[in-house]
């Protein structure tokens, strides 16, 4: 009954044209058990993963279905790609290829691009909050989450050329040497985004990682993968080089263990994993001495700007290099 009606109406901003008709159609449909023809047939978006700057389906051809609203069973479902092990490997490959270029950009240029991301997110406020609502978040909360996400992008855009001076040092060694320590990027970081908040948690995990010059492969929230893809559409238009952020959808438990064993992955940033999976993934990560950060922030915790915009979030994803040079005549 009323198949697709809410879906068509709900896409984008909740007040999208045609919704009134659709809602009426839904009401009338219940009378007869018959078919209610909407005034205008909506367009359904094919949701695709974001890899190497392109929107792709899973190479496996598999999909998962996501309810229109959390808690709505059965009928109103949309198809989202279900990433395979090979999708994970492909994503690591492009992330690794993108790393030198991204890390090699000037810190200021990375800041410009993250600021551009803030602009692109701001321009998609309606779309993003609509997506969150379709994922089950109340309208007011969805808008607050989008606001916080835009702000977080702006905050990290400012960090790109500043954290270095906080982590670096000129070391007063006891001898005729010039000695200094400065941060560098790690490489490819695999991020498991928290289930909720699906947008702010995703952006809040990605931003510190790419601010520091790393590239990443992100496993999106399984509770609301559509919002991650809409976020990727903002990434795609923000001058971010392809491959710097790669977003996969599907089952975390299926793909993550392979990424944890992948030697080209330098670090794992795991948000809210259940303990058994976390343990086994950390065991796998030890095979190549990966840096592993496993955390579970509360939903409110992600909204704590002072805590989540601390340089400590960036410091987790840098290496420190110390260079010695003699000083003499």
């Amino acid at each position: 009954m009323a198949r697709g009606s809410k879906q068509d109406a709900g896409r984008g901003a909740p007040q999208a044209a045609g919704e009134g008709e659709a809602a009426a159609g839904e009401a009338s449909a219940s009378q007869e058990g018959g078919f209610a023809q909407p005034a205008r047939v909506g367009i359904r978006k094919a949701y695709k993963m974001f890899v190497g700057g392109a929107f792709v389906r899973s190479e496996s051809g598999r999909y998962t279905q996501v309810p229109e609203h959390a808690g709505v069973a059965g009928e109103n479902r949309e198809n989202v790609p279900r990433a395979s092990r090979k999708d994970g490997r492909d994503a690591v490959k492009v992330a690794h290829e993108a790393w030198a270029g991204w890390a090699g950009r000037t810190a200021q240029n990375r800041g410009q691009i993250l600021y551009r991301l803030g602009e692109m997110l701001d321009a998609r406020r309606g779309e993003l909050s609509g997506s969150l609502e379709r994922g089950g978040v109340a309208a007011g909360a969805a808008q607050a989450e989008v606001d916080a996400t835009v702000d977080r992008a702006i905050a990290y855009a400012g960090w790109t050329d500043k954290y270095q001076s906080l982590f670096a040092s000129l070391n007063p060694v006891a001898g005729p040497h010039f000695n200094f320590t400065s941060p560098e990027s790690l490489g490819v970081v695999v991020i498991v985004a928290p289930e909720r908040p699906a947008l702010l948690g995703l952006a809040g995990a990605i931003l510190p990682v790419i601010t520091a010059g790393n590239t990443c492969v992100v496993l999106a929230s399984t509770a609301d993968p559509r919002t991650a893809i809409t976020f990727a559409e903002a990434l795609a238009t923000s001058d971010l080089p392809g491959g710097v952020v790669n977003i996969l959808t599907g089952s975390v438990a299926e793909v993550l263990p392979h990424l944890a064993r992948h030697v080209e992955v330098a670090a794992l940033d795991l948000h809210g994993l259940e303990p058994a999976l976390r343990k086994s993934v950390e065991e796998d990560a030890s095979g190549s001495v990966k840096r592993v950060h496993a955390r579970k922030l509360s939903e409110e915790g992600w909204f704590d700007a002072a805590a989540t915009e601390s340089p400590r979030w960036i410091e987790r994803f840098v290496e420190l290099k110390t260079i010695w040079h003699p000083a003499g005549q």
Binding site: N171, V173, G175, N179, T181, I323, H325
Partner: peptide, 12 residues
Amino acid sequence: ANTFNKFDPSSP
């Protein structure tokens, strides 16, 4: 650089 195996407590 132009030295090797130097250590100091102030140097990470």
